[in-house]
């Protein structure tokens, strides 16, 4: 559905996007993940023909973006970052205007979109009087009004309250069953909750491109267990825990009253029963033991940190 090859964008001397390539199949929900300033928005802006790439090609559907920009634009529904919508229009007029340009003849569609995005009560308010969350919803309605093949959402849930976030994620999942969705975010749980696939970008380069579940599984060959113990000091604790087979290292963690430690072990080694037994045999009290799950968060931190150390 979308294929991007060797795409780069320079702003003066700054290289915002550096030679990235990926392709997205129909019906996939893809998350574009990266820290602030990684080049997410720039990439999406090139996909939607707002920015011209410095080099490289974008192919959307059957069209090349530099040859048929209007055909590309007409199959993409796009929500820019922070939904910059005309403030001096009322919501209904605005949706009507977009519907007209996108060739939607059925006026019922506007009402449908309004109720889908929870805007029915707001139709006669000025956009500038809306709260950020409602403005974001107008932006979503605007993107979906012509029922486009591809939906590109730049930080769709920013500024929404937790209930709305859950609603919008549900909506995106719903749409993603039939349509191709690309969303950008720097919130990791969002990708975990909504996306089938994740592309991690850092400093304009792709550092990972995989399905969400694979990415979570593939990374790392060690796991971390954090413990909090009373009645002992760190050095004694470390001495004791180092003797367990499979433990690679024990690192001190700060805690006000208790002795905290993070135990690094080989991934396939279950050492928690040993840890518990040794601590209780010594007469120490175990307050907390937690195995850190390898969430996307860790993967993300490792990938983006690794880049910056180079």
């Amino acid at each position: 559905m979308i294929s991007v090859s060797d795409l780069s964008k320079n702003y003066g001397d700054v290289q915002a996007v550096n030679n990235i390539s990926f392709s997205i199949r129909k019906g996939e929900i893809t998350g574009l993940l990266g820290p602030n300033g990684a080049g997410k928005s720039t990439t999406l802006r090139m996909l939607t023909c707002y920015l011209k790439p410095t080099s490289g090609k974008v192919c959307v559907g059957d069209y090349l973006s530099d040859e048929n920009p209007n055909e590309v634009r007409s199959i993409i529904g796009y929500l820019p970052e922070s939904a910059p919508i005309y403030g001096d229009m009322i919501v209904y007029d605005y949706l009507n205007y977009v519907a007209k340009i996108r060739g939607v003849r059925d006026k019922k569609r506007i009402k449908e979109m309004a109720s889908l995005c929870g805007l029915t009560e707001m139709m006669h308010k000025n956009v500038s009087d809306l709260s950020k969350g409602f403005k974001q919803r107008v932006g979503l309605a605007h993107a979906m009004i012509a029922d486009p093949e591809i939906l590109i959402l730049d930080e769709p849930t920013s500024g929404l309250d937790p209930n709305q976030i859950i609603e919008i994620r549900k909506l995106i999942r719903e749409i993603g069953k039939e349509k191709t969705v690309i969303l950008s975010t720097h919130i990791l749980s969002e990708v975990e909750a909504t996306c089938d696939r994740v592309i991690i970008i850092d400093k304009g380069k792709i550092v990972a491109d995989n399905s969400t579940s694979e990415l979570k599984a593939s990374q790392g060959n060690e796991s971390r267990i954090s413990v909090k113990v009373a009645n002992t000091d760190f050095d004694t604790l470390k001495e004791e825990l180092r003797n367990i087979s499979g433990v690679i290292d024990v690192i001190k963690t700060e805690d006000d009253n208790l002795t905290g430690a993070t135990i690094i072990t080989a991934a396939d080694n279950e050492v928690r029963p040993d840890i518990f037994r040794r601590i209780s045999d010594k007469g120490w009290i175990l307050y907390e033991m937690l195995k850190e799950s390898r969430s996307l968060e860790n993967v993300f931190r490792e990938l983006t940190r690794g880049e910056s150390n180079e």
């Binding site: 939607t48 023909c49 707002y50 209007n70 007409s74 910059p84 005309y86 403030g87 340009i101 996108r102």
Partner: peptide, 14 residues
């Protein structure tokens, strides 16, 4: 200035 230019430019308009 308000950024609505981005929306205008991503609508199917020449």
């Amino acid at each position: 200035n308000t950024g609505s230019f981005e929306i205008l430019m991503t609508l199917p308009l020449s």
